[in-house]
Amino acid sequence: PKDQAKKEIEKALRNGDEEKAKRLAKKYGISDDDWKELKKRVS
């Protein structure tokens, strides 16, 4: 599910692991808009 994916990506971003977050986003098909939203929430 997308919500689970977003949680994992957000966690990776919080850990400062943007490479992992990007890989997860690609793997789960997270859209650019969702990606920006996640980045905003974390920063």
Rank of each mutant, 00 (worst) to 15 (best):
D3M: 10
A21W: 01
L24S: 01
A12G: 01
K11V: 11
D32P: 08
A12Y: 09
Y28C: 03
I9C: 04
K27C: 14
I9V: 08
E8C: 12
D3I: 10
L38H: 01
L38F: 04
S43H: 13
G29E: 07
D32L: 06
N15G: 10
Q4H: 11
K39W: 06
D3Q: 10
D34L: 05
Y28F: 09
G16P: 01
A25G: 03
Y28S: 03
K22W: 14
D33A: 12
Q4W: 15
K36E: 15
R14T: 04
K27G: 03
E19H: 08
D34N: 03
D17Y: 11
D32G: 07
V42C: 09
K20M: 13
K11R: 14
A12T: 03
R41Y: 06
A21E: 00
L24H: 01
Q4F: 14
W35F: 15
E18N: 07
R41L: 15
R14Q: 05
K22R: 14
E10F: 12
L13A: 01
V42P: 03
R14P: 00
L24K: 01
A25D: 00
V42D: 02
K26H: 09
L24P: 00
K39R: 09
D32N: 07
K20P: 02
K6T: 12
R14G: 03
D33H: 09
K27Y: 14
K39Y: 08
W35P: 00
V42K: 03
R14D: 02
E18Q: 06
E19P: 08
K39T: 06
Q4V: 11
K11Y: 09
K2E: 11
A12W: 10
A5E: 11
R41P: 03
D32I: 07
K7M: 13
D17K: 05
E10V: 13
D3W: 13
K22E: 07
K26L: 13
K39E: 06
P1K: 11
E19G: 08
Y28Q: 02
K2V: 13
K6E: 10
I30A: 01
L24T: 02
S43Q: 15
G29F: 05
R14Y: 05
K2W: 13
A21H: 00
D32S: 07
V42G: 03
A5S: 05
D34W: 06
L24D: 01
K22V: 10
L24V: 03
L24I: 06
K36C: 15
K40M: 09
D3R: 08
L38M: 10
W35Y: 15
G16R: 05
D33K: 08
K20S: 10
K11P: 00
N15M: 14
K36T: 11
A21I: 01
K26M: 13
S43W: 14
K6M: 15
V42W: 05
K27A: 09
A25Y: 04
V42M: 07
E37M: 07
Q4K: 11
R23L: 14
E19K: 10
E10K: 04
N15F: 07
K20Y: 15
K27P: 01
A21V: 02
K7F: 11
K40T: 10
G29N: 11
Y28V: 03
P1S: 13
I9W: 01
I9H: 00
D32Y: 12
E18P: 05
E18D: 06
K6R: 12
K11H: 13
D17P: 02
K27H: 09
A12M: 10
R23K: 12
K40Y: 10
E8V: 06
A25M: 05
P1A: 12
R14F: 05
E37I: 06
D34F: 04
S43L: 15
R23Y: 14
A25N: 01
E37G: 04
D17G: 02
K39D: 02
K20R: 12
K27E: 10
A12N: 02
Q4I: 11
E8D: 07
K26T: 09
S31P: 04
W35N: 01
K40L: 10
G16A: 03
R41K: 15
I30W: 07
K11G: 08
D34H: 03
V42F: 11
K22Q: 09
Q4M: 11
W35T: 01
S43M: 15
L38T: 02
N15A: 14
S43F: 15
D32R: 06
A12Q: 04
E18I: 12
E18K: 05
G29R: 07
K40V: 07
G16Q: 04
W35D: 00
P1C: 15
D17S: 04
S31N: 07
K39I: 14
K40S: 12
I30L: 14
G29M: 09
K40R: 15
S43D: 15
D17H: 09
K2Q: 14
L24R: 01
L24W: 03
K22N: 04
K36W: 15
G16S: 03
I30C: 04
S31E: 04
Q4C: 15
I30R: 00
K27S: 06
K40H: 15
L38A: 02
Q4R: 12
N15C: 13
K20F: 14
I30F: 09
A12P: 00
K22S: 06
I9F: 01
Q4P: 06
A12K: 02
K36P: 02
K26R: 13
V42A: 10
L24M: 05
L24Y: 03
N15E: 15
D33F: 05
R23Q: 13
K7E: 11
K7Y: 11
S31R: 02
G16E: 03
K36M: 13
A25Q: 05
K22P: 00
D3F: 10
K6V: 15
A21D: 00
N15H: 10
K7H: 09
K36D: 14
D32E: 12
D33S: 09
Q4N: 10
E8S: 05
R23E: 11
R23M: 14
S31L: 04
K7A: 13
K39F: 06
A12V: 05
I30K: 00
D33G: 06
W35M: 11
K36S: 08
R23W: 12
Q4Y: 13
G29C: 13
K20W: 13
P1Q: 13
K22G: 04
